[in-house]
């Protein structure tokens, strides 16, 4: 159990590093690869939180399906490096970074001054039980049956929409 905080620190550092690399790299392919590393980190964190099914889905759906789609589109459009910003756009970058850090400060302020969150030092005793495929499946197919079926409808609509949008226009 003593290894857990070390593992968390390592994963957190890796996740933040890959996220920062993603936004500072000019080449979109390198950004995509950094984001895939970030997704693997998050999957490991889900495992630390005993959410087995979501860890597997994170790798299969995010690092697998979604990122393959993104890399495929980058390849299809044959994108090069993003061109450097002219000087007059420099202030926009400053404003963006300042706003982002402002948001981070707000969030950490809320975290530090909400006493309820600090009360949770340990995982709940039921945590290893609720993340299993069995528990998730039971919940999804009984309690959340209607949202689950709506999700199927949403995916169908997305497939039809994607095909219509990306279709070459007929003359």
């Amino acid at each position: 159990m003593t290894a857990e905080p070390l593992l968390f620190l390592f994963l957190a550092a890796f996740a933040v590093t890959t996220a920062v690399l993603m936004i500072i790299q000019r080449n979109p392919v390198m950004s995509a690869i950094s984001l895939i590393g970030n997704f693997f980190c998050l999957a490991a964190l889900y495992l630390m939180l005993r959410a087995q099914l979501l860890a597997v889905l994170q790798i299969a759906v995010y690092a697998g399906a979604i990122m393959v789609l993104v890399v495929f589109v980058i390849m299809l459009l044959n994108l090069g490096d993003e061109i450097k910003l002219p000087v007059r756009f420099g202030f926009r970058r400053t404003v963006g970074v300042v706003l982002g850090f402002g948001l981070l400060l707000e969030l950490t302020y809320l975290l530090l001054f909400t006493p309820e969150t600090a009360e949770h030092e340990m995982l709940h005793a039921d945590a290893p039980l609720i993340g299993t495929v069995e528990a998730m499946g039971t919940a999804l197919y009984s309690q959340y049956l209607f949202p689950l079926q709506l999700t199927g409808l949403l995916l169908l609509a997305a497939v039809v929409g994607a095909v219509i949008l990306a279709k070459r226009r007929l003359p």
Partner: peptide, 16 residues
């Protein structure tokens, strides 16, 4: 995750 997958498909189709 399901919504993100749908969003990825439609968003990338818009980009194309």
């Amino acid at each position: 995750m399901a919504v993100a997958a749908a969003e990825a498909a439609v968003g990338l189709a818009i980009v194309i």
